[in-house]
Structures are given as structure tokens and as C-alpha cells.
Computed example of a mutant assay.
Amino acid sequence: MLGLEYFNFKDVWSPVFLAIMLLISAGYFVLIGPLGEKWASGEKVSVSRKILFLTGMLLLYLAQGGPIELLGHMMFSFHMVSMAFSYLLAPPLLMLGVPTWVWRFIVQALGRSPLRGLKFFAKPVVAAVLFNGLFSFYHIPLVHDYVMLHFGIHRLYYVILFIASILMWWTLVNPLPEKAGVQGLKKMGFIFLNMVLLTPACGLIIFASEPLYATYSDPGVWARAMGYCVSGDPSMLLSQFGGPQFFGYLEPKVDQQIGGIMMKFIQELIFASMLAYVFFQWYKQENREDTEDERNGIATLPSDTVALTPGETVK
């Protein structure tokens, strides 16, 4: 299916990465179980939180170690699906799945460490510019091809981008209710800012007149990049398949355009849904406050009103 049948189990499912993700998931349940009873004074973690965390882990595994990761080396459209899973879907699910008391511990520990100076990057506008800037910079053709051909830099960049996505999502998710976060119109403005900042990169990809990335159009470059995610001699890929076009049902330019459209569509769908939710919550809050003000106004006499005793008349 989609060319996966030409690769072995190790190449498609990355057992080592799968084992790491399973260990992290097991550690999560130990943390919210026996350790949670000791540190969180019996604070229970709901089933919904557990489902959110596991769903986030599954998406992250599929995008960074499972079939989508391999397909992302063969088709640009799947590369964009991998990016969307890794940085737009998995982070908020993982953040919502982690208990509040764990986030308190992490924030307090960071506040006492030398990293406390980096809290500047968690400011809403800075976090939005940082994440979208790193994402856009990565998709400059020369940068993208260089990163894809250097495994160490590739992994480091993805880790930094994931941390930047956590900082960006922090303003929207706000995992610490006691911390005063951005609300109402300011949060809607933050969402809109993120929607705008990613548009230039997607526009460059969608409206390009030719394939931009050698990783998906040059057989030699493609084979070198594939060497980091499949076993065996990369040169054998050329003799066996000839290049990435063997696996693509579309021309490289069309595949590239679809990838840009998919990324923008997924981002717009996620942020537009959040924008509608935040607007609805803000509207309800405003109406609730107006209603309370009206009730207080009816129940309270004006300061210049004179109370009359029984039998007293006003002339």
C-alpha cells in the first residue's frame, strides 16, 4: 500500500522508536498511579485525560517513527501530514493529558533552574513568532534539503520545533488554571496571529511554479535522505526504484502543492475551531457579567434614594 509493501517491518514501524514511546507511556501511568498517590494527595486523573495523552503519543509515533514518517520521505504531501500530526495535533493532546500537578512541578523546577531565563520565549507573541518562524525557515528549500541530509541536525531541529510548538500551545491550552492566561479577545487575536504567520510558507509551497525540494525530485538526494530511515545500502534504492516518483501517484509539483494545501487546511481547521470555541466562551462570559450587573442594579437602591418609614409620605 502506497509503496510500504516494498520495505520490511523495521523500516515501516521503527521498533526501537516504538519501544521508546511505549516506555514513556508506561512511565506516564506509573507517574499518575503509585507516584501520583504520593505526590498529588490522591488527585485522580480522569479517563479522558488518559485517552488524550495516549492519542497524542500515537499520533507522534505515527508521524516520527511509523508509516507516515517513512511515507514522508517519499511524498511531500505525507511529509506535511507528519508535520501537522507532530506540531499541531500531538502537542495539545499531550499537554491536556498530563495532570495539573505534574505541570506545577515542571514549572516550579524550571523556575529554580538556569533555564528560568528562557521564560521570555513563552510569552504569547514571542512563542507564536518563534514556532511559525522555525516552521517557515525549515521549509526554505535549501534549508529543508540540508536538514534532511544530515541526521543529527534533522533530529535536533525537530526537537527544537516540538519545544517551540509546546510554548505556542501553552497560551491556548493553559494547563495551569490558577495562572492568569490570555483570555477573550486577546486569545482570539493570538489564534488569528498564528493563522496569518504560517500563510507565507504555505503560499510559497502551493504557488511555486516548479518542484522546490531536491529530496522529492532528485533521485540521488532522495536516496541519501532515505538512508536515514531504511536499512541497507541507499544506492540499492536507486537500482530498485529509480527515485521517489516510483511511489508517487502524482507529479512532484502537484504532490508539493497538495502538501501545502493540506498543511494550511489542517491548520485552519484546528485554529478556526478553537477561534469559534474561544469566541463562544467569551460571548457567554460577557452576557453573564451583563446579566449580573442588571440584577445588582435592580436589587440595589441608588445612593440618592430616600427610604420612607411606614405611613410617611413625600410632598
Rank of each mutant, 00 (worst) to 15 (best):
V125K: 03
R112T: 10
I266V: 15
G152R: 11
Q183R: 15
V196P: 02
I205N: 12
A201S: 11
M263S: 13
S41P: 07
L89H: 01
T171G: 11
W101N: 10
K38W: 07
Q256D: 08
M57H: 12
A276Y: 15
M168H: 12
L52S: 12
G33C: 06
M21W: 12
D233C: 08
L70P: 08
Q64P: 00
D11W: 00
D11F: 05
V126L: 02
L4Q: 04
N296S: 10
L237F: 14
V173S: 05
G220S: 07
S14F: 13
E268C: 09
F53S: 03
A90Y: 13
S165L: 08
E294A: 13
P310Q: 14
M263E: 15
Y61C: 03
V159R: 12
I270A: 05
K187T: 10
M195I: 06
V314D: 02
F78S: 01
L23Y: 05
R104Y: 08
G97A: 09
L269R: 03
S14T: 09
P67R: 08
N132P: 05
P244W: 06
F192S: 02
Q64M: 14
P177F: 11
G248R: 14
L142H: 06
L94M: 14
G259K: 05
F271V: 00
A19C: 05
M57S: 03
G203R: 09
T305F: 15
M80I: 01
K264M: 07
G56C: 06
